[in-house]
């Protein structure tokens, strides 16, 4: 087979997420939609946030100014799906890898729970199943069959709703298409967002929404902890000057340099 067949499916795919911080109202619909989509368990007491298991977390970030000059933004934080994923490099079980379309993927049962990846991830995107997953009684009926539930003792994280890609791709194949249309595959969080602050799409397609947004908003785009060089696939947009230094722990000079380089 080889070349002839390979041409049948376009591999010019790299999926990225763009989150417009200025448009996010911190409502939390994305987190709930994500939890519902990915069969995330709920324990009765989840107020210890270090033990709480979420794929997507919304951070509330203030400008640290006193009342009434305080300002607040909400920052949703999924897995960054880095191009050079630190978590993958440290995994001793080869239970996680980075795939061609840009998603850091994982086989849950293969993980033996050493949690090196959690220690390595600078974004705290990976979470560990400290307990057997529990669900409110009866809600197992609402399970999404496209995502396997995870067992105690394994690490898990946001998958950019990879199962949606799998099914979108199957549909495209069945219809004889060789690539996905823009917007055909988007994760549950982006789908649910009521203010449409989350954009998702193929950055290799110059006409996709994300490519357009990233071009248009170039001076305001940044990624978290870019200086670590892990090349995250999640881009943030904020037009407020104070946001990036507060989010990113960059020094003021670094920020200025960055701003200049972008202009």
């Amino acid at each position: 087979m080889g070349h002839e067949e390979k041409e049948n499916w376009s591999h010019a795919e790299k999926y990225v997420m763009v989150i417009d911080i200025d448009k996010c109202t911190g409502c939390g619909a994305c987190v709930v939609a994500c939890s519902q989509e990915n069969n995330i368990p709920v324990r009765t007491d989840e107020t210890d946030k270090y033990m709480s298991l979420n794929w997507l977390v919304i951070y509330r970030v203030t400008n640290a100014q006193p009342f009434p000059k305080t300002k607040v933004v909400y920052v949703p934080r999924p897995c960054m799906h880095c191009d050079d994923p630190i978590c993958v490099h440290v995994c001793p079980a080869s239970a996680t890898d980075k795939d061609a379309k840009g998603i850091v993927s994982q086989i849950y049962p293969r993980c033996f729970g050493c949690r090196y990846c959690m220690a390595a991830c600078p974004y705290h995107a990976r979470v560990f199943n400290w307990y057997d997953p529990v669900y409110p009684k009866g809600t197992e009926r609402g399970f999404n069959p496209d995502v396997s539930t995870r067992m105690r003792g394994v690490v898990e994280k946001c998958s950019f709703c990879n199962h949606r890609y799998q099914h979108a791709r199957d549909k495209a194949i069945a219809e004889g298409r060789v690539c996905l249309e823009d917007g055909e595959y988007i994760p549950a969080c982006a789908e649910a967002c009521p203010t449409k602050a989350i954009y998702f799409g193929n950055i290799k397609d110059p006409n996709s929404q994300v490519s357009r947004i990233l071009r248009e908003e170039r001076p305001h785009v940044f990624r978290l902890l870019e200086k670590y060089g892990s090349e995250p696939s999640v881009y943030y947009i904020s037009r407020q000057d104070w946001v990036r230094p507060r989010l990113d722990w960059v020094l003021e000079e670094e920020h200025k340099k960055y701003k200049n380089s972008m202009k």
Partner: peptide, 26 residues
């Protein structure tokens, strides 16, 4: 089985769902 809710693209009211709506299945 009902597994997920999303916004009705034909609705003039909403473009996404709010967290309450998203938790409907629960």
């Amino acid at each position: 089985r009902v597994v997920q809710v999303e916004a009705n693209p034909l609705s003039p009211i909403n473009r996404g769902v709010c967290p309450l709506g998203a938790a409907s299945v629960q």
